[in-house]
Amino acid sequence: QIFVKTLTGKTITLEVEPSDTIENVKAKIQDKEGIPPDQQRLIFAGKQLEDGRTLSDYNIQKESTLHLVL
């Protein structure tokens, strides 16, 4: 699982696999929060994550925290 922290300070927990794409993660966030993926920007280690890449591409491991910017 990974954590996604929103600007409001809320933390969302997501069940993911390293092979999941960023697009996939955004879809999971939409399921939980109702935020359309095209409004979501995910930041990890100061980098904006691209939809077509996977979590493992960015070396995002379990218990990692991503930041969600709208």
Rank of each mutant, 00 (worst) to 15 (best):
L68H: 01
D20P: 01
P18E: 09
K28G: 03
G52P: 07
K62R: 09
L70P: 10
E15F: 14
L14P: 00
K47R: 10
L14Q: 01
S64Y: 08
V25K: 00
F3W: 06
E15K: 07
E17T: 10
D38P: 08
G34K: 06
E63A: 09
L7I: 12
T11V: 14
V4Y: 02
R53H: 15
T11S: 07
N24Y: 13
T8I: 08
D51S: 08
V16R: 02
L70M: 12
D57Q: 06
H67N: 08
D38V: 08
S64P: 03
L49E: 00
K26C: 02
I35K: 02
Q39T: 08
K47C: 13
V69S: 09
D38F: 12
K10L: 11
E33T: 13
K10V: 10
E23I: 14
D57G: 04
T54E: 04
T11G: 03
N59C: 11
V25M: 05
G52H: 13
S56L: 11
T65L: 10
D20F: 07
K28P: 00
K32H: 09
E23T: 09
K5H: 10
E17W: 10
K5M: 12
S64F: 08
I60T: 02
G34R: 06
E17K: 08
T65N: 04
K26T: 02
D20E: 10
T13I: 13
T13R: 06
S56H: 11
Q48C: 15
Q30M: 13
E23F: 14
L7H: 15
I2P: 00
L42S: 00
E33N: 07
D57S: 12
K5Q: 11
H67E: 12
P36Y: 05
Q40M: 13
N24L: 13
T11M: 12
T11C: 15
N24V: 14
P36H: 11
E15S: 12
L7W: 15
L68R: 00
L70T: 12
G52T: 10
L70K: 07
A45R: 11
D51Y: 04
K32I: 13
Q61T: 14
S64I: 05
L55K: 00
E17S: 12
L42I: 07
D31F: 12
S56Q: 15
P18T: 09
D57V: 03
T54P: 05
V16G: 03
Q48G: 07
R41T: 14
P37Q: 12
K47M: 15
I29Q: 00
K47W: 07
I29T: 01
T6W: 12
R53G: 06
Q1S: 11
L70W: 10
H67Y: 13
N59I: 04
P36E: 07
E15N: 12
L49S: 00
K26F: 03
Q40A: 05
N24E: 15
Q1F: 15
R53L: 12
D57T: 04
I12P: 00
T54Q: 06
Q1N: 11
I43L: 13
I2S: 01
Y58D: 02
V25E: 00
G34S: 06
F3A: 04
T54I: 07
L49W: 01
D20G: 03
K5E: 09
E33Q: 07
S56C: 08
L7V: 15
T65Q: 06
A27G: 09
Q39H: 09
E33G: 05
S64R: 04
Q61G: 12
K47H: 13
Q61M: 10
N24A: 14
L14N: 00
F44P: 00
K28W: 05
V16C: 11
F44K: 03
V25I: 15
I2R: 01
Y58H: 04
E50A: 09
L49P: 01
T21K: 09
D31N: 10
A27S: 12
Q40H: 04
K47D: 07
K28R: 08
S19N: 13
L49M: 06
Q30F: 14
E23H: 11
T6I: 13
D31G: 09
Q61W: 07
E23Y: 14
G34A: 05
F44Y: 15
P37W: 11
K10Y: 12
L68A: 02
I22L: 05
K5W: 05
D20A: 06
S19G: 11
G52Q: 11
I35T: 07
Q39C: 14
K10A: 09
